[in-house]
């Protein structure tokens, strides 16, 4: 199965895998994964153990695949692993910071390990630490950092050498809601303002909805779906209507709309209207009808909006397929 989505046609993908498989004995971490990743922010989503970290480690050359091929930024992972590691940054999921070193010293050292000279490394580290939001703390040993600060330092070392692609493995792990929002905003900026391609993993679907251009869903090491985020959140064509009052008012509206030819069902305090039939399909026709019905029944219209899909639906659909 090959998945190349619309926005990728005609461009070299940042990451391309073909039949990528990794088995640890009887454990199948990744099975026959064929997917292309383009520029911008790509979310890699799946439950714990879905194969997200395994995929990143294979792409970095830290693990060898059992079968299949992959290329990153046009370099083959088996033949040119070193060239890939020059061009990418990696923020691992787990803690990886020595506690007795300051973030400033550490990021400088890591930049040098990526091939920057001493002065360039110092300059880039100061820049990057400012971008991730580590200010005065950067001179303190990292052992005393909060989880949020550690995540920032980890991100800074991944960006220190100005990579063309960064792998961010669960960057929001362990963060409180405010820090989570900050981190997601930063991830989005890396993709848009910094112009660095991002592959970001998360087991929380809602997070990636906000920041990714493209989402790849893994389930048990298999590709469930890969497409642009807008496709996931596509407008289903259904409408949601809410009126002032209780369920009685809701049902009155629903019954009247049904009589006029719309298929309706209650959803919470709202009426969900299925995509209108052909005679009402014209732009705004269904909206006008709903407005008129509400006026005729003397109901206060509170909300009338298109019904969007959610990333969660992919799992529901996928679950039905398996």
């Amino acid at each position: 199965m090959t998945t190349v989505t619309g926005e990728l046609i005609g461009r070299t993908p940042v990451i391309a895998t073909a039949g990528l498989t990794k088995h640890y004995g009887s454990v199948h971490a990744l099975t026959d994964l064929t997917v292309d990743v383009g520029p911008g922010v790509t979310g890699l989503v799946g439950a714990n153990g879905a194969g997200k970290s395994t995929l990143i480690k294979i792409l970095l050359g830290l693990l060898e695949p059992t079968a299949g091929h992959a290329s990153v930024l046009g370099h083959d992972i088996e033949q040119a692993s070193q060239d890939i590691r020059r061009l990418v940054g990696y923020m691992p999921e787990h803690d990886c910071l020595p506690p007795d070193v300051s973030a400033s010293d550490f990021v400088v050292h890591m930049a040098r390990m990526s091939g920057l000279g001493a002065s360039a490394a110092r300059e880039r580290s100061a820049d990057v630490l400012r971008h991730v939001g580590l200010d005065e703390e950067r001179y303190r040993p990292m052992g005393g950092y909060s989880t949020g600060m550690k995540q920032r330092a980890k991100l800074a070392q991944a960006l220190a050498h100005d990579p063309q692609l960064v792998f961010l493995d669960e960057p929001t792990n362990g963060l409180d809601p405010a820090a989570r929002t900050d981190m997601l905003r930063l991830v989005q900026r890396i993709g848009s303002d910094f112009g660095i391609a991002v592959l970001v993993t998360s087991h929380l679907l809602g997070e990636l909805e906000q920041v990714s251009d493209h989402v790849i869903v893994l389930d048990g090491g298999r590709l469930l779906r890969s497409s642009a985020t807008t496709d996931f959140l596509r407008q289903t064509g259904s409408l949601l209507v809410e009126v002032v009052g209780t369920e009685t008012e809701r049902d009155r509206l629903g019954e009247e709309l049904a009589r006029r030819g719309l298929t309706c069902r209650p959803r919470g305090s709202m009426v969900a209207v299925d995509p209108p039939p052909a005679d009402l399909a014209a732009e705004g026709a269904a909206h006008d009808l709903i407005r008129d019905v509400a006026v005729e029944l003397g109901l206060g219209l509170m909300r009338l909006e298109p019904d969007r899909g959610h990333l969660e639906d992919v799992f529901l659909e996928g679950g039905a397929r398996v």
């Binding site: 970095l60 830290l62 390990m113 990526s114």
Partner: peptide
Amino acid sequence: HRSIVLYLARPLS
């Protein structure tokens, strides 16, 4: 401290 992962994700093997 597992910073070895950060080294091995860089050019040196």
